[in-house]
């Protein structure tokens, strides 16, 4: 088992097999596109974002984290009719942030995971809003109540999802 040393704290670094690395983000994007048609409440959740946060926190490498975010975000952009890069930029920032924080704090703890997901959901939405409204010129509406309740829902669902995805982790 290899460990990385940061500020005196010992944190584990994990890796994933190639099928998991590519398959899970693909399944997350597929479910995000398919399930809301059958279960409308599902659109509150952002599975690609949760997967980005999970991989970034587990790998604890900022470059890998931001690249994971970039690819997942761009792939998600490609399914919409909007310009490519809005989700890409937002998830790049989240991937970088989650992996940087993953080095410093114990991201295996469910409480920490919930808090991190909640924070990164709001960060993701804020960056998306800034880029889409400021750069692309989309008309968007920011509703704090909706965003906070969505963040809580994602945080709770995220903790459950992460414990499921933990099974695919491989210690380096």
């Amino acid at each position: 088992m290899s460990r990385t040393s940061t500020s005196g704290a010992q944190v584990e670094v994990f890796s994933f097999s190639a099928p998991v690395t590519f398959g899970i983000p693909l399944i997350a994007i597929f479910l995000q596109a398919w399930l809301p048609l059958r279960l409308s409440w599902f659109s509150v959740l952002d599975l690609p974002l949760l997967v980005t946060i999970f991989f970034a926190m587990a790998r604890r490498n900022p470059i890998t984290g931001l690249l994971t975010g970039t690819f997942i975000g761009l792939f998600q952009d490609a399914l919409t009719h909007q310009a490519l890069g809005v989700y890409g930029i937002a998830k790049t920032v989240v991937g970088y942030g989650a992996s940087s924080l993953g080095i410093r704090i114990d991201s295996e703890n469910p409480g920490a995971r919930m808090l991190l997901t909640l924070v990164f959901y709001v960060v993701h939405k804020s960056v998306y809003f800034l880029i889409a409204a400021g750069l692309v010129g989309q008309s968007l509406r920011w509703d704090w109540l909706h965003e906070i309740s969505s963040a809580v829902a994602n945080a709770i669902f995220g903790v459950l999802l992460y414990s499921l995805l933990d099974r695919f982790k491989r210690r380096i």
Binding site: L37, H81, A132
Partner: peptide, 11 residues
């Protein structure tokens, strides 16, 4: 068969 998967893209 599917949606765009985004709240901001109604397609």
């Amino acid at each position: 068969i599917g949606s765009s998967g985004s709240d901001q893209s109604h397609s």
